[in-house]
């Protein structure tokens, strides 16, 4: 099996790519939990003027009927006007696309953004919905039955790890 990319090493390149498209009005939203960690880092690297938004899509998931409500939904906080805004939506790993679908539905309950671009650290393929990332740190192959997750160490360092899917 190929070695997983180093999350820290991917950050500068991803930030440089985003730097070319942001304006002072651009705002960023990170999806809990991994996407929020990544967004905090990118937000600082880009020096964005708008405060960072954080979103938990628990109330918009499409598997509620099957799985119920997850145990510790975080409070979504979007500290800027969404209406008419160019948004960067940040998640750690892009897989089926269902999380991004839910996030876009939630976002539109805050207003009508001018544009949304999807930023992910890793794309593992396996899409079940017509969604793609505009900015992606790395393509990663994940063996069947495994899950790719972003971890954050006590010192704040980010790393990609594989674990058995529940």
């Amino acid at each position: 099996m190929k070695k997983l990319p180093d999350a820290e090493a991917l950050l500068p390149g991803l930030a440089a790519e985003l730097g070319a498209r942001v304006s002072p009005a651009t705002a960023m939203i990170g999806l809990y939990t991994g996407g929020a960690w990544l967004a905090e880092r990118l937000h600082a690297l880009l020096g964005l003027k708008q405060p960072l938004g954080l979103m938990d899509i628990a109330f918009y998931r499409d598997d509620y009927a099957k799985e119920g409500l997850k145990h510790d939904p975080k409070r979504t906080r979007i500290p800027f006007e969404v209406e008419g805004r160019d948004l960067l939506l940040v998640d750690d790993v892009l897989y089926t696309g269902r999380t991004v679908r839910a996030a876009m539905n939630e976002l539109f309950d805050y207003g009508r953004p001018r544009s949304i671009a999807l930023v992910v650290l890793a794309d593992r393929g396996g899409r079940q919905l017509p969604i793609c990332a505009q900015h992606c740190g790395a393509q990663v192959e994940v063996p069947e039955g495994m899950r790719l997750r972003l971890k954050r160490a006590a010192d704040g360092r980010l790393s990609l790890e594989l674990e058995r899917a529940a």
Binding site: D56, A58, F59, Y64, P73, K74, E106, Y110
Partner: peptide, 19 residues
């Protein structure tokens, strides 16, 4: 804790989620 997250919803313009 879940109520705390819903309190955020009730402060929005659209105070509704599709659950």
């Amino acid at each position: 804790d879940t109520a705390e997250s819903f309190a955020g919803v009730t402060e929005r313009e659209v105070k509704k989620v599709p659950l």
